[in-house]
Amino acid sequence: MVEKRTLAIIILATLTWALIATGSTTYYYLEQAKYQEQLNEKQNLLNQLKENYNSHATKKNLISGDYGALLGEYQWFTEENYSPLMSKYEQLLSNLKGNYTQILNAFPELNETYGNLLNRVQTLKNENVTREEFGSLLNDFYKLFTALTIKESEEFLGKTFLIHVNLCIDYGNGTVNWYNNTEVALGTTLFNLTTKIAKADYSYWPTMEPGHILIDSINNYTSGYWIWYYWDESTNEWVFGPVGCDAWILKDNGTYKWTCTS
């Protein structure tokens, strides 16, 4: 009788152990499979990052070479009228558009800079172009080119890395809306974040640098000027935005604020 009882208990204990062991093994296997999948996903992202980087470097080197050649011609040009170089400049601008169409379409502020540059070229095309005017065109081209290359690299890094930020919109009439822990891609500007979260109307100021955008209204609220601030963690206070919102790159866990002041 005792033996039977002992046997029954041993069977129960074994069954308990078997069930727990099976469950643990399955759990371990599923966790391993999950980690492996995550690892593969990360590896794919890194491979994609490498491919994007190669394409980015090729484009950048190509346009840099063309720009360098035109800059060299400009520096050695001895005539007073620089209009013979305008067709090469136009070609360079066209190449820029061809290589960075996606970025220009994605970022209206850069597209506007490009449009302004193209308009200036069209205006100067049939006129006498001075050295200063052509030099200014070259200078503006280089700034746009640099901005586009930075934006492109941020774009493909943003596909791999995400950051979280907080945005406050203070309408100045007592209504304050917080958008906490918003997930955005690395390299996102405050302007991109604002247009992502709210409906924002803006104006483009070519002479303002860095950043050409001023916000006119957020969610159709126009009773004043929209000014932005960022939260300085070292001093624990809001700091007035020192540049245009389209030139301010967001930091991970950064906190930003739009305030409407009359």
Binding site: I20, G23, S24, T26, Y27, Y29, L30
Partner: peptide
């Protein structure tokens, strides 16, 4: 399978 497997740590 997943309910039993993910319940195992708690079961232990």
């Amino acid at each position: 399978i997943s309910a039993l497997a993910y319940g195992t740590p708690f079961s232990v």
